[in-house]
């Protein structure tokens, strides 16, 4: 079984534009934990951005750092726009409104599915999107017009 982690690609690849810790992060200590940390060359912690509040943080959980370094899991990133689109698709087709955090995983599954016919995907929808309705409305103004 392959394990795939999906980080917040935000709105760009520059410092402060995303929260993809495995893209440009380096081992460091923040708030008592040692893990991959987005930081500058002097060890100052970088600002981050993600449309998803739960991913908008400079450090990744140490368990993920371990799985990454073991090469047991692969880590990729989905952009804000990809996560929002995936959330809308899942809501429309399955009636499941995912949390924006989980929507990043849905986005990666959508990218991989066409080339993986016959394989089984398990997507961890770890949270519900009720909490994100305001952000969905902001990003999909057409939904209000119906």
């Amino acid at each position: 079984m392959e394990l795939i982690g999906v980080e917040a690609g935000g709105r760009g690849s520059g410092a402060g534009e995303h929260a993809a810790r495995f893209r440009g992060g380096a081992p460091g200590v923040l708030q008592g934990a040692y893990s991959y940390l987005l930081q500058d060359e002097n060890g100052q912690v970088s600002l981050t951005h993600s449309v998803s509040a739960g991913l908008d943080y400079a450090m990744i959980g140490p368990e993920h750092a371990w799985l990454h370094d073991l090469e047991r899991a692969e880590y990729v990133a989905a952009s804000d726009a990809e996560a929002l689109d995936a959330a809308r698709l899942l809501s429309r087709t399955e009636g499941i409104i995912p949390a924006l955090e989980s929507a990043h995983a849905v986005a990666e599954a959508l990218k991989r599915a066409p080339a993986a016919k016959g394989r089984i995907f398990v997507v961890n929808v770890s949270g519900r999107g009720d909490k994100d309705v305001d952000i969905y409305r902001e990003n999909f103004p057409e939904l209000d017009e119906r």
Binding site: P27, G28, Q39, G43
Partner: peptide
């Protein structure tokens, strides 16, 4: 703090 020290 520790992180600048680790980095250095």
């Amino acid at each position: 703090y520790l992180n600048p020290v680790i980095r250095y």
